[in-house]
């Protein structure tokens, strides 16, 4: 408990404007931050000698479908020093669905961001190699968006021609 409070305290002192929302559900701490201050905050979390969130475990997004800010990107980071998982959340709009890339801070983010781009169509700016991760090149849709049907869209994946 104390560790979490000290993290929140630290972030609030350093970035009083940036922290939008803090939730602690089932002992999982997640902090929603403003899109503009993501990079500064991430750098601070990684480099501060008392926090040292050196490992980025996962990046993903949530499609809220009907909310005004349609997407949230989730950064799941871990500190060996404190032995704690922390989730950073950033709410972004669909137009433009853009957010700064954190590859410079956590190199492991490269593939996670590619996957998120593939699945949700969120563009990570300044990403070194933003290609699709799973879906084939030239696929036009982003499958994990809520408006993509589970059964797929007929004709979206070109199949090889039948031999005569």
């Amino acid at each position: 408990m104390e560790i979490k409070e000290s993290i929140i305290e630290k972030l609030k002192n350093r970035f009083p404007e940036s922290v939008v929302e803090i939730s602690d559900f089932r002992n999982d701490l997640s902090i929603t931050v403003k899109k503009e201050s993501l990079l500064d905050l991430a750098k601070f979390l990684k480099d501060d000698s008392e926090l040292l969130f050196v490992m980025c475990k996962d990046i993903t997004a949530i499609d809220w479908a009907t909310r005004k800010n349609r997407f949230s990107t989730i950064y799941n980071i871990y500190s060996f020093h404190l032995n704690i998982n922390l989730r950073l959340k950033v709410n972004i709009d669909i137009d433009p669905a853009k957010v700064n890339s954190v590859v410079e801070i956590w190199p492991s983010a490269e593939w996670y961001e590619r996957e998120t781009f593939d699945m949700y169509g969120i563009v990570f700016e300044n990403h070194p190699d933003l290609r699709r991760m799973y879906m084939p090149e030239g696929f036009q849709y982003h499958p994990l968006r809520k408006d993509f049907p589970v059964l797929g869209i007929p004709g979206s994946l070109p199949l090889p021609q039948k031999p005569e």
Partner: peptide, 9 residues
């Protein structure tokens, strides 16, 4: 260092 920064577990 690489193992940590690349998210290897």
């Amino acid at each position: 260092e690489d193992a940590i920064s690349l998210g290897v577990t």
